[in-house]
Amino acid sequence: MNLALTDLGALLQLIPVQRAGAALLLAAVGLPVIGVVIVGLDIMPVRFAMMHVALLGIAVGLLTGLDPMVCALIACALAGAGVAPLARTPDGLSGAMGLLMSLAIAAALLTLSVSGVNASGAFALLWGSILSVGSADLWVLGILAVLVPGLFWWRRRDLALLLYDRELALCSGVRVERLTLLLLVLVAVAVAGAIKLTGALLVDALTLLPALAARRLGTSLTSITLWAVCIGIAVNTTGFLIALSLDLPPGPVLVLTAGAVALGAHLIPERRTRSWRAPASASFPSSH
């Protein structure tokens, strides 16, 4: 036991490990709030589409010599803004996401093929590379950690109305389409920003799982969001330390840790009906 603690202490002295830990803490502040938005708006397909768009951005970055993660962030932001006008009905968004996924992965594979770029660097990000987190990644996660909770606090009334009922939000003077555009862009950028931490295939550990657990513990949108952030911090810290101690890949350990917490939270009997949660049929802006 003492030897294991000594080894863990030695690992925590390493700069890459410290950067990875800082990145996970920053991610735990902003990304669970994004998860609350994804669950509340019932826009699960968005994160899958943005994984493919991020891969396209990485491929373009490898081809042009630019930073692949910066290209991924820009590509996801543009894609999120581009599909916002189509998000007027659930079917409209689902169709747009399906088309976006197909086109993005095809374009990424074609770019990698014709350019002669080694595809291993691009596809490695599907599984994450948390110890390669650099200063630029920390800046992105830090901005998200400030911007996402700040937006939530500033527009919490509008967000609550948007999650409850779109028509009511419109009647209350909320600029639904503009707010939805902003949310989709933030979701897209957040997914791209988290890819290096857990990989595109496991990004749900940092976004959705804390939000799903928080829904069973909170009684309002604000309390659910606070629960999501607290759970995210606890899960990221615990999962990372377990991975270091047992010499395991952090991504899967984070997912399993977050999943265990989410399952445990769902064993708690639900005592109330949450009025803030919009029905699936009202999850998108009106076409009026």
Rank of each mutant, 00 (worst) to 15 (best):
C230I: 11
A10F: 15
V174P: 00
P269L: 13
M51G: 04
I43K: 00
R178H: 00
D67M: 07
I15L: 13
L14A: 13
A214C: 14
D91I: 11
L197G: 12
A104D: 06
L254Q: 07
I74R: 09
L25W: 02
G80F: 11
T198M: 09
T89S: 08
A59Y: 10
C71R: 00
S115G: 15
R175S: 03
L12C: 14
A72K: 07
V203R: 08
V203Q: 07
L159D: 06
L267P: 03
A262Y: 01
C76R: 14
I105R: 12
V140S: 09
M51Q: 11
I58G: 08
L161Y: 03
L254W: 07
T219N: 14
L217I: 14
L217V: 14
L11S: 10
G134L: 13
V235E: 06
G82C: 02
W276A: 08
P250G: 05
T225C: 02
G128S: 13
A205Q: 02
D91K: 09
V255C: 06
S223H: 12
A169V: 02
L125M: 10
S102N: 11
V253P: 04
R156L: 05
V133Y: 01
G95S: 14
L24H: 01
L163A: 05
A260Y: 03
M51Y: 01
V70C: 05
A213P: 01
G95Y: 13
Q13F: 05
L254C: 09
L25I: 08
R215P: 02
V189Y: 06
L100I: 07
I15T: 12
T225G: 00
L5H: 15
Q13S: 11
A84L: 14
A136D: 10
W153A: 11
E177Q: 10
R19P: 00
A28V: 14
R271A: 14
L254D: 08
N2I: 13
G82Q: 01
L8F: 08
A104L: 05
L24V: 05
V37P: 00
I242S: 01
R274W: 12
L147P: 01
V176P: 00
L201H: 04
L181I: 02
A104E: 02
G232Y: 04
E270C: 10
R166A: 06
L25S: 00
D137G: 10
I105M: 15
R271K: 14
G134C: 12
W127R: 03
A96M: 06
M101E: 06
T198Q: 10
A107Q: 06
V253C: 09
A96K: 03
A213S: 05
G264Y: 10
A190V: 07
L186I: 01
L103K: 07
R19D: 08
T180W: 05
